[in-house]
């Protein structure tokens, strides 16, 4: 009985090999095509950034730049306060993302791990936060920040980014927390650990992969945001990289090459951060698994 069973398995495997190889070839072909489609935009953007307006609108959009305009980068880099904008982008993004993930983790922990009557209601309250169109909030938020003297203050941005990304972050965390094993936490409770200890030393490390995921998502959103910045911030000293793009949009015409260059410059840091963080998604599992 056991013998025939083993034979069957083997048979399946050898049959699968010929078909399997073909299947893999097809699979990689499809994956490869998708990969090209996905990486192309980045390459396109780099070409775009080296073109003149004439080329952008007159030549085929997929042509290589005839005479690469590296000066687009020089223009972008020397004009205005790009260093300062860059610095602002980095720290405003980082603080907002850290705050968002911390607060969201607290809430998700409380909702999924702790027992209280209102948890569903509170979760509902957060979910509704997903549903408001951003532009509806501009005038009310402006008035609010004006009344507490935070207009033209970076804290207005940090608080707004945090509030608007909390619902999304909580939702994503929620999906993951429901799949995380609870045994370790339960054991810790029995051992008499405090809740804070459980949260910071068991749950947070275990949720490293999803935190990396939400970190990437939050980071991209905050990094590219411009509606709130434009509305709440007036001083140059608090503006961010997305404002740099505005610099090249004119009343009747727009310097697209320079915009392309700004976009390339602004995508590099998140590209690097992203590659680093996306490794964390896998590493985090390993770390969590060891502790688990």
């Amino acid at each position: 009985m056991t013998e025939t069973g083993q034979q069957e398995v083997k048979l399946q495997k050898s049959e699968g090999n010929a078909a399997g190889k073909f299947g893999y070839a097809i699979l990689y072909l499809i994956l490869g095509i998708i990969a090209v489609l996905q990486i192309y935009p980045l390459i396109w953007l780099v070409f775009f950034s080296l073109k003149t307006n004439q080329e952008v609108f007159n030549a085929s959009p997929f042509a290589l730049p005839a005479d690469p305009k590296w000066e687009n980068y020089a223009t972008v880099w020397t004009q205005g306060n790009i260093n300062l904008y860059f610095f602002n982008s980095v720290w405003i993004t980082l603080v907002s993302v850290a705050l968002t993930i911390l607060l969201a983790s607290f809430v998700t922990f409380a909702i999924t791990r702790m027992n209280w009557k209102l948890s569903k209601l509170v979760l509902g309250l957060f979910m509704i936060g997903l549903m408001i169109p951003v532009h509806s909030t501009l005038i009310p938020l402006f008035n609010f920040f004006l009344s507490i003297n935070l207009i033209d203050h970076p804290l207005a941005l940090i608080l707004t980014y945090t509030a608007f990304n909390l619902p999304l972050t909580i939702m994503i965390l929620l999906g993951f927390y429901s799949t995380l094993p609870r045994e370790v936490e339960e054991a810790a409770v029995i051992d008499g650990s405090s809740i804070h200890r459980i949260f910071f030393q068991i749950t947070l490390p275990m949720s490293m992969p999803v935190m990396s995921t939400t970190f990437i998502i939050n980071m991209i959103y905050n990094w590219n945001e411009f509606v709130f910045i434009n509305t709440f911030i007036s001083s140059d000293s608090y503006k961010t990289l997305t404002v740099g793009i505005q610099n090249f949009i004119g009343q009747y015409s727009t310097d697209w090459g320079a915009i392309g260059a700004t976009l390339v410059i602004s995508i590099l840091p998140i590209l690097i951060a992203f590659v680093f963080l996306s490794n964390k998604i896998v590493e985090g599992i390993a770390a969590g698994a060891v502790k688990g």
């Binding site: 402006f142 434009n230 509305t231 505005q246 949009i249 009343q251």
Partner: peptide
């Protein structure tokens, strides 16, 4: 820039 200007001026006026 043009569009952002129009949007902001409106929010500023309302406040």
């Amino acid at each position: 820039s043009n569009d952002q200007y129009k949007e902001k001026i409106k929010v500023l006026a309302s406040s």
